[in-house]
């Protein structure tokens, strides 16, 4: 059972997660079917900036985050931005969408000029997230847990970060037990996705360079 405090934390995190989203007009442009390679590149890079801003606004709402050392806050956000973006875009891709929308989104990525060697692991990740049938609470908590990883480069006070992450992990563990009773490994599988995210993160810089060249 979630304690009252844990339920309140969960509600708060989910509310913050839902409140901060990429602007609608930008999201609508993504669903336009006809676009040139250049238009696509510009839109996707614009969306990346917006995604980071959304991520920062969400993170500011994580209890205790703004009381961390300021440079540690920067280090955590820098270290987790790419992973958080992949998580958020996985949610978008695996959500049930009106007819044809997922195909348009997929087409944008496949025609973007990004090499197949990077696209394949990305879509494999989206597929593995989809298979988990995650609830919104799980997306929100997993994002917070990703951001609060104390082993990011340049984080000085790792203990302070771990102290913020621990309650999130506990709430997620309980939530998994309550919502996925038929899958006792659900929590472990969610954490396994974080490992997959690290791989995507490491490949990301190489992916950007190759994309820019193409």
């Amino acid at each position: 059972e979630l304690s009252q405090e844990q339920q309140a934390l969960l509600n708060y995190i989910v509310e913050a997660y839902n409140k901060h989203r990429v602007p609608q007009d930008m999201a609508k442009k993504l669903l336009q079917e006809h676009f040139s390679a250049e238009e696509n590149f510009l839109l996707l890079t614009e969306m990346a900036t917006s995604h980071v801003q959304v991520l920062v606004e969400f993170t500011k709402n994580i209890p205790g985050f703004q009381s961390l050392d300021h440079e540690d806050q920067i280090a955590l956000l820098k270290g987790s931005a790419v992973e958080a973006m992949f998580l958020r875009s996985a949610e978008v891709f695996t959500k049930k969408r009106p007819q044809g929308q997922t195909e348009v989104l997929e087409e944008r990525i496949r025609k973007s000029g990004i090499s197949e060697e990077f696209i394949t692991p990305m879509f494999n990740f989206y597929k593995s997230i989809g298979e988990l049938q995650m609830r919104q609470e799980e997306h929100a908590l997993l994002t917070a847990i990703t951001i609060l990883s104390s082993d990011r480069p340049y984080v000085k006070d790792q203990q302070a970060v771990e102290q913020l992450q621990e309650p999130m992990l506990e709430v997620l563990w309980k939530f998994c037990k309550l919502q996925h009773p038929q899958d006792p490994q659900h929590f472990a599988r969610l954490l396994g996705r974080l490992t997959e995210l690290r791989t995507l993160n490491h490949q990301h810089a190489e992916m950007l360079e190759s994309w820019r060249m193409s």
């Binding site: 920062v56 920067i74 931005a81």
Partner: peptide, 22 residues
């Protein structure tokens, strides 16, 4: 890649200081 990291940090610092304009 180092250019991307600097760009990312600048966006983060700006967003941390101010409000994201919805």
């Amino acid at each position: 890649p180092s250019g991307n990291t600097i760009g990312l940090e600048a966006i983060i610092r700006k967003a941390l200081m101010g409000k994201y304009d919805e």
